[in-house]
Amino acid sequence: MSVTVKKFFLLFLLVQPSTSISFGPKITVVVQNGLQGGRDMLLHCESADDDLGVQLIHPNNSFQWKFQNNVFGRTLFHCSFQWESVLHKFVIYKTSRDHNTCHICNWIVKEDGPCLIFSGRTDCYNWNSLEER
Rank of each mutant, 00 (worst) to 15 (best):
G53A: 05
V54D: 11
F23T: 06
I27N: 00
L43P: 00
V31I: 15
G37D: 14
L14N: 05
D51Y: 13
Q32C: 02
G73H: 11
L35G: 00
L14T: 02
G24P: 03
T28R: 02
V30F: 12
S22W: 15
E132S: 05
T75P: 01
V29Q: 02
L11P: 00
V54T: 11
L52K: 07
E131L: 10
M1N: 03
G34P: 05
K7L: 13
S18G: 07
I21C: 07
Q36G: 03
F72M: 10
I21L: 15
Q16K: 07
H58F: 06
K6S: 06
T28L: 04
L10G: 01
K89R: 09
S20V: 15
N33F: 14
Q36M: 11
G34R: 12
D112P: 01
E132L: 09
G53N: 08
G38D: 04
Q68R: 14
L11N: 05
R39H: 08
F72Y: 09
C45Q: 05
F9M: 07
V91K: 10
T75C: 03
S85G: 04
N60W: 05
Q36N: 05
N69G: 04
V15T: 08
F63Y: 08
C105K: 02
V54N: 06
P59M: 09
T4P: 00
V109K: 04
S85A: 08
R97W: 12
H103S: 05
N69P: 05
D51E: 08
I104L: 13
K66N: 09
S22T: 15
V91P: 04
C124E: 08
N60M: 10
Q68D: 06
E84T: 06
A48L: 06
Q68M: 13
D123P: 00
V3A: 01
T122K: 13
W83A: 01
S22Q: 15
E111K: 11
F12H: 06
V31D: 01
V71E: 03
R97M: 11
Q36W: 08
C45D: 04
F118W: 14
M1Q: 03
C115H: 08
V5I: 10
F63A: 00
V29Y: 03
E46P: 00
L10V: 10
E46T: 02
V71R: 06
V54H: 10
T101K: 11
E84C: 08
L116C: 02
K94L: 15
L11W: 09
K7T: 06
G113T: 09
P114W: 05
N128F: 04
Q55R: 14
P114H: 07
D51C: 11
S85E: 12
F9Y: 09
N126S: 12
R74T: 08
G53W: 14
F67G: 00
C102M: 13
S96I: 07
L11F: 08
N128R: 11
R133M: 11
F90C: 03
P59K: 09
N106D: 15
W83D: 00
L43G: 00
S18T: 12
W65E: 03
E46I: 03
T19I: 14
L76E: 04
C105Y: 12
D49H: 04
S80M: 11
G120Q: 11
